[in-house]
Design a protein around this nucleic acid. Sequence first.
DNA 1: GCTGAAAGTGAAAACCGTTTTCATTAGACG
DNA 2: CGTCTAATGAAAACGGTTTTCACTTTCAGC
Lengths: 164, 164
Amino acid sequence: MAVSVDDVFSQITARGLRVTRQRRAVVAAVADSSVCLSPLEVFEAARRDCPDLGLTTVYRTLELLGEIGALRRVHGADGCERLVPAGSTHGHAVVCDSCGRVTEFTECDMGDVVRAATRETGYRITGHFLQLSGLCVDCAAQGDGGARTPAARPDGRWNEKGSR
Amino acid sequence: MAVSVDDVFSQITARGLRVTRQRRAVVAAVADSSVCLSPLEVFEAARRDCPDLGLTTVYRTLELLGEIGALRRVHGADGCERLVPAGSTHGHAVVCDSCGRVTEFTECDMGDVVRAATRETGYRITGHFLQLSGLCVDCAAQGDGGARTPAARPDGRWNEKGSR
DNA sequence: GCTGAAAGTGAAAACCGTTTTCATTAGACG
DNA sequence: CGTCTAATGAAAACGGTTTTCACTTTCAGC
Ligand SMILES: [Mn+2]
Ligand SMILES: [Mn+2]
Ligand SMILES: [Zn+2]
Ligand SMILES: [Zn+2]
């Protein structure tokens, strides 16, 4: 699911770039995840396959994957962001507020919303960034409440910065 | 338009906080803008009213305005973000890709989209983050093309970081 | 399989937006 | 005014990301 690993490597070679052990590890780490990952988390996951991997290379590879379109950005309420593998060219993230799982949603018909916005603002609307949030199937079944799995940081920060 | 300055000051005093010369300048700078602003840009604008203003105070005031709900975050394609005044409690930004102007859009009926997403993902959807993009009335009238006003950075970064 | 040109890598340093610290200033309220 | 406390700004600290650079690896072409 999510990213097709073979496609990613095809795109890399098509650009005249090289498939390295490090890139394989980063792509695998991202492709395997159903949860938002920070660059640091990608680093830690990929490092299990490739212990001598450097954080610098993770950043460089994530940028490359972004150019290829294999990553989708997920914005948190406070503006920081995380990355999830993108399964298709046009899709949106649906984020579970409880466990952090991210699922892709592709059947977005924004026609009515775009018409309403055009009426209200006069803009000629050509694009949209949409992200839905709620409870995934598992979390909804477990009960309606708050965070079960503390693994996912609900505030959506890349990482805990200051102590505050 | 956008933020009601008086309301903001009411909320500030209601919290037992103080209305200072610096806060007045920051609120004015944000409220006057129809374009996304970075904290640095807010600082520069507010400094014209209040030359001894410090950047630290801008950050502190922006955080306060965020808590009050007087700011809306705008996410750029690359994940960095900017701030615009929020006119209402629930609304979405419509961003002009050409000049950077941001207008608020409130009549969002996401019913169909949410139903489609529920069908596709099984999530119980309780929230949405939506941001539309296109051309504002002025830019659409001027022609269909690319950036006219180089003032707005199309990449959406807070500021030009590295040289790269 | 070699070989060589060019891409890739990682450690360390630099960068830079943001946050913290702390001594000083200035609202609000009587 | 006087007091009490929130607010401020300069400077330092912070921390995620990017750059640098000497070294390694990939892979197309023998
Ligand atoms: Mn869509
Ligand atoms: Mn809405
Ligand atoms: Zn969940
Ligand atoms: Zn415009």
